[in-house]
């Protein structure tokens, strides 16, 4: 599916305006609902309240209760119902209010959402988008700050993506809704209020592609979602010290864009991945293994992971120590032998 096919042309181009990521996501859902009457929205308090992060603000008023409905507090029920709606021919977009609130729905997502298409030999696709606000840096605790991506990326059958900026948020969500595959759409909470000037409907790179956000020659720094900003700040800081860092925003965690990332690693010979989730068994482990398998003879040093610690997400007073920072990333890079 090419990106050109995914955005319907019925949405008129609007004048550029300053939009937060939350507003861009809102616009994406709205435009998708205008273009496609089969798109329906439900979840906990997504109606009149507009969702905890106001991503669905105004949609209930515009589209009415048939298409935008509040669900009871029942995540397994929400996802399970979405499965049925998708089987029936609709395109449900459902919201898990917070990352860790998705765990009651784990069974439905892993055992059914991910497997239905394969189970039915392609006869029953599930065009479902499960939106999950994730990660920390907002002073939440534990389950309000979880990075749950590795649970989903470890499950074949799911497409797992995470935008890092408002333009991608709009474009990727439109493409996710238009996709015939179930998409776990991970929204970095700390970036909800980041702004960009956008002329909607904006279309960025295809959903399954990584992008090089900043070119460099010495190190490939791989990030996604909330840590992209950190990676860019790191590159900025490193440049002052004469280190040239190439920053890649993965965008799509699964599938993984081997081509874009591999080319960068072959160029720089050094790579590090940054994520908020704990390190052990985390997504970075897969990235490191995969890149090593395919690019071993280009590598001058082992691939590093700069991540949250292997502890539950800490309390607000301690999260600054937990989150990867430019200083921590640069300290990690300095452990390499540079010759």
């Amino acid at each position: 599916m090419s990106p050109q096919q995914t955005l319907a042309t019925g949405t008129a181009v609007r004048a550029p305006e300053s939009l937060t990521m939350a507003a861009a996501l809102n616009a994406a859902i709205r435009d998708a609902m205008v273009d496609d009457p089969t798109v329906v929205l439900f979840g906990e308090d997504v109606g009149p309240l507009g969702g905890v992060f106001r991503v669905t603000d105004g949609l209930y008023a515009e589209f009415g209760e048939t298409r935008v409905s509040d669900s009871p507090l029942a995540e397994a029920g929400i996802v399970g119902t979405a499965i049925g709606m998708a089987m029936y021919g609709l395109r449900p977009v459902v919201e898990m209010q917070f990352d860790a609130f998705s765990y009651p729905a784990f069974q439905q997502i892993v055992s059914h959402v991910a497997k239905m298409r394969n189970r039915t030999r392609g006869k029953i696709p599930l065009p479902i988008v499960i939106r999950i606000p994730y990660a920390g840096d907002i002073g939440g605790v534990e389950h309000h700050s979880d990075s749950s991506e590795a649970y989903w990326t470890a499950t074949p059958g799911l497409t797992v993506v995470s935008p890092s900026n408002p333009a991608d948020a709009y474009s990727m969500l439109r493409e996710a809704i238009a996709s015939d595959d179930p998409v776990i759409f991970m929204e970095p909470k700390s970036r909800y209020w980041s702004k960009a000037s956008l002329a909607l409907p904006v279309q960025t790179e295809p959903l399954n592609r990584a992008v090089v956000l900043r070119e460099g020659t010495d190190v490939t720094l791989i990030a996604y979602g909330p840590t992209v900003k950190t990676a860019l700040a790191t590159a900025e800081q490193a440049a002052i010290e004469g280190l040239s860092i190439e920053v890649i925003d993965l965008r799509s965690l699964s599938p993984f864009d081997d081509e874009t990332v591999g080319a960068s690693v072959q160029k720089t010979g050094r790579a590090a991945i940054v994520h908020e989730a704990a390190q052990f068994g985390g997504y970075g482990a897969e990235v490191a293994a995969r890149l090593t398998e395919r690019n071993f003879f280009y590598l001058a040093a082992p691939i590093l992971r700069i991540t949250g610690f292997d502890i539950p997400y800490p309390s607000p007073k301690l999260e600054e120590y937990f989150l990867p920072t430019p200083d921590r990333i640069l300290a990690a890079l300095s452990t390499w032998e540079w010759s």
């Binding site: 991540t307 292997d310 300290a331 452990t335």
Partner: peptide
């Protein structure tokens, strides 16, 4: 699992 998670190690030195 990771050395960074051993008690007592200064946080800022850990990866």
């Amino acid at each position: 699992n990771a050395p960074s998670a051993l008690p007592g190690e200064p946080v800022m030195d850990a990866l």
